Computed example of a mutant assay.
Amino acid sequence: MHARAVAASTTALLGTAALLLPLSPARAAESSAPPLVIAHRGASAYAPENTLAAVDRAAELGADWVENDVQRTRDGELVVLHDDSLQRTTDAEQVFPDRAPWKVKDFTAAEIARLDAGSWFDPAYAGARVPTLEQYVRRVELHGQKLLLEIKNPQLYPGIEGEIIKVLGNEGWLDRGHVGQRLVVQSFSADSVRTVHDLRPAVKTGFLGTPPVSDLPAYAAFTDQINPSYGSLSSGYVAAVHAFKGPHGKPLEVCTWTVNDAAAARRVAGYGVDGIITNTPDVVRDAVGG
């Protein structure tokens, strides 16, 4: 973790209080609503992850939110891809056999644009491409969807936070409507999340992970969401997170990942989570009524 240190006695008291505090009337009313359903890398159970086809499939299934991953090419283009290597989800190994280990940062945007990012998933998606961030947000905008954008491996790409903010601004995603209701930027790196908050305080942010309750006051200074793996969750932890207010003066939210079956979806919804990130948005929606 990269959260700033907090005095042990203070955080211990805060952590204990957070576990015991009742929900405010506003939070109690919010918790009665079903959680948001967020299509992980698009509807990635049904179309190749992080492609425009996955965004389209999510829209067809009625998913208002999609999640994606952003990395940077050798020549500075931002592309939407989960792994820092092209090997798993493209035919880079066949097209560029002498370029192992096929790291995204070692290829130009033009080279990546040549790759097939769909055949590995299903021959029906042959010819799908790795989208640029511009292409991706334009497709999300076309469907009127909302975006949970993950900065992937920021330690590999110094300055990527500012570059993402620039693209979002150029594409019209930093106006009041988008920033207020349609955009969250998240990362496993607390430093990266803090950088986004410092660069553009209006943008809603999320930290991926399950920090100790004693550390939550430090995280609440720069992030609006704590987004843990569903296997690490409990109702007590969700209540503890909700007891703190984030940088925009609202209770911290919890969006959990990656939940793909109805039973797990109902379980975490019962914990009071605000969002469920899933490869199967239709299954989760039907389970929780989102």
Rank of each mutant, 00 (worst) to 15 (best):
W173K: 15
D175S: 07
P201R: 09
A113F: 04
L115P: 02
H242R: 04
P34V: 12
R194L: 10
H178F: 11
D91F: 13
L23K: 05
L52E: 01
R267P: 01
A128H: 14
K166N: 14
V79P: 03
R194H: 07
D198A: 13
V167H: 03
R182I: 04
E111H: 11
Q71S: 00
V203K: 08
P154N: 05
R4D: 11
G62E: 10
Y136H: 12
G62R: 15
A263C: 11
Y230Q: 05
T51D: 09
G290I: 12
D75E: 15
L142A: 15
D98H: 10
G290M: 10
V95E: 14
Q155K: 13
G231T: 15
L174Q: 07
N68T: 09
I277W: 02
V254W: 02
V130N: 12
D274Y: 05
K204R: 11
Q181N: 13
E111R: 10
G162S: 13
V196W: 04
E77N: 01
G76C: 14
R88H: 08
V79W: 12
A220V: 06
A7V: 04
E253V: 00
G209R: 12
A220T: 03
R139N: 02
R194Y: 08
V80I: 15
V185T: 07
D64Q: 09
D261T: 04
W257Q: 01
T108Q: 12
S229A: 10
S119R: 10
R72L: 05
R182A: 06
Q186T: 08
N68S: 13
V196D: 00
H40Q: 06
G15N: 09
N170L: 14
P154S: 00
I165F: 07
D83P: 11
D75I: 04
R88E: 05
E150F: 15
V288L: 10
A221T: 10
L36K: 05
G159A: 04
A218I: 05
